[in-house]
Design a protein around this nucleic acid. Structure first.
Length: 479
RNA sequence: GGUGGCGUGGCCGAGCGGUCAGGCACCGGCCUGCAAAGCCGUUUACACGGGUUCGAAUCCCGUCGCCACCUCCA
């Protein structure tokens, strides 16, 4: 049982060999909290949540660090522009960043992404960033800007392997058309430290050996990952769009400073909408809050987690309906089997062990599409066992299905997905519907099918569907 | 110009040389008073053109189309 993962740097599947037996350290680039989370952010967080759950299942003690970039050009820009809402005019950058951070946290929680081991904010590691920059200057890999900006740049020419992560040669790269050469020696040199500008708030400025200023984006992750996971750690993750320049630059600066850095680089695929990347200019971004209005959070989790983590998800209308239908199959089976096994010697949870082929798929670079194939096969077998009254088999399969859904975080009966069940309104509804079901049963036994069907139709119009089964008639609200 | 990825049946989505993916949808059967749910079965595939091989969705070459990144990005 070896877990394999696709390492972006070597462009190959690799056996996961941890630095320390039984432990796995993951650093994942979290969002820049400059606007509300969209479904791409949800997917990214979900992918590493799934990796983590599988590593834990395989016995690893996982340290998952996902940062929050809470100081950045964009955040300052958003804050300085103010907002059309009077209440928020003059909102400081740090309040804006925190407001969005809370939205991210809430969205993650709603789709069942477990809190990381730690979630460091960039602004809390400024001194570590400065220490790293100082090392780079001392080693001749960074230099203060040649103008009086107070910037400090990484000297890409001093680092021969620069570009290795994305296999690009600096000479082949197209220089940004709007690039401001500022005090750089070469266009591809990137800012480690950005000198304070007069129009920026004092609160976004820290003292440094190179003058007041703030950190560049890339240095943040190099500093935070080594602070919490050490200079050499197992896995570095993030969105595919972060490979260049962000991860390339992290790798270069950390290696140049003498840190071994990540052993494996993992990148998740992006979420497109109708074949196009979400972008502000196209106005096609789907925000997490809106998406979660379209379907239950559990369905959103199933949908975003069902595709292989490295593939692009192309969202189109109707996709959530299909996900809901697939998930319902699992949910209906679990409800059905639990009900049937009640008051038998097979009641209770039983052994929760995942089938070997499920584990094999998960070990193989987290092949969730195949793992879901196994899950659905088991559901069918479980339903067949129930049809044949083979309760022993049904109980075994129930344990397997619960084990698989727990690992994927999609067990419909898990406490995190529970809604308002048990409220006074629910009890009242239950009493009324049960009363109507009794009336219908009476009509059916009298062979008064017109009355029976009228009751069923009335309930259907109210959004309540009925299922007749050997264990009686059960009702559920159409989701 | 450079780097990387993709093109599978009505839709989504696995597959990495040989026997089944799976889900959704559709159709037929069983079950049911009729349904629903469930089970069983059927039907549609590998962008195109060559090549390698006993055998190719899978490997090689070429063509076409699509996408991402190349200093804002999950």
């Amino acid at each position: 049982m070896t877990i394999r993962l696709y390492d972006t740097k070597t462009q190959a599947l690799q056996d996961f060999v941890p630095l320390v037996d039984g432990q796995a350290g993951l650093y994942v680039c979290g969002p820049t909290v400059q606007s509300s989370p969209h479904i791409g952010h949800l997917r990214s967080a979900l992918v590493y949540d799934l990796w983590r759950r599988w590593l834990v299942y395989r016995g690893f003690t996982v340290t998952l660090v996902r940062n929050v970039t809470d100081i950045d050009d964009k955040i300052l820009a958003s804050a300085s522009q103010g907002s059309s809402q009077a209440l928020r005019d003059g909102e400081p950058w740090w309040a804006l960043a925190y407001r969005y951070e809370l939205e991210f946290t809430d969205s993650y929680r709603r789709i069942g992404v477990l809190a990381p081991t730690y979630e460091p904010r960039a602004t809390a590691s400024i001194s570590e960033m400065q220490a790293l920059i100082t090392r780079l200057i001392d080693l001749g890999h960074a230099y203060p800007a040649t103008d009086d900006s107070g910037d400090v740049y990484f000297d890409t020419a001093s680092w021969p392997t620069y570009g290795e992560l994305t296999r690009q040669k600096p000479g082949d790269m197209v220089a940004a058309t709007d690039a401001d050469p500022r005090g750089k020696r070469a266009p591809q040199d990137f800012a480690l430290w950005k000198g304070h500008k007069p129009d920026e708030p004092e609160s976004a400025s820290w003292r440094s050996p190179w003058g007041a200023g703030r950190p560049g984006w890339h240095i943040e992750c190099s500093a935070m990952s080594s602070r919490y996971l050490g200079p050499h750690f197992d896995i570095h993750g993030g969105g595919l769009d972060l490979r260049f320049p962000h991860h390339e630059n992290e790798l270069a600066q950390s290696n140049a400073a003498g840190d071994e850095f990540a052993n494996y680089w993992v990148h998740n695929g992006l979420v497109n909408v109708n074949g196009q990347k979400m972008s502000k200019s196209l106005g096609n971004s789907i925000f997490a809050a809106d998406f979660l209005d379209l379907a239950r959070p559990l369905v959103v989790r199933y949908y975003l987690g069902a595709a292989h983590y490295r593939s692009t998800i192309d969202y189109h209308e109707g996709a959530l309906v299909e996900a809901e239908a697939a998930l319902d199959r699992i949910e209906v089976f679990l409800t059905r089997v639990t009900r049937r096994l009640e008051d038998t010697r097979f009641a209770g949870s039983g052994a929760q062990i995942v089938p070997a082929d499920f584990a094999e798929a998960m070990d193989d670079d987290l092949a969730i599409p195949q793992a879901l194939g196994v899950l659905h096969d088991r559901v069918r077998a479980g339903n067949a066992a129930l049809d044949g009254e083979d309760l022993a088999a049904a109980a075994t399969i129930r344990g397997e299905v619960i084990a698989m859904t727990e690992i994927l975080g999609i067990n419909p009966h898990a406490p995190e997905w529970r809604t308002s069940a048990g409220s006074p309104a629910d009890r009242a509804l239950d009493a009324l519907v049960e009363r109507l079901i009794e009336d219908r049963e009476k009509a059916r036994s009298d062979r008064d099918f017109a009355s029976a069907d009228r009751i069923r139709n009335e309930l259907a119009e109210a959004g309540i569907s009925l299922e007749d089964s050997p264990t009686g008639t059960h009702w559920s609200i159409e989701q």
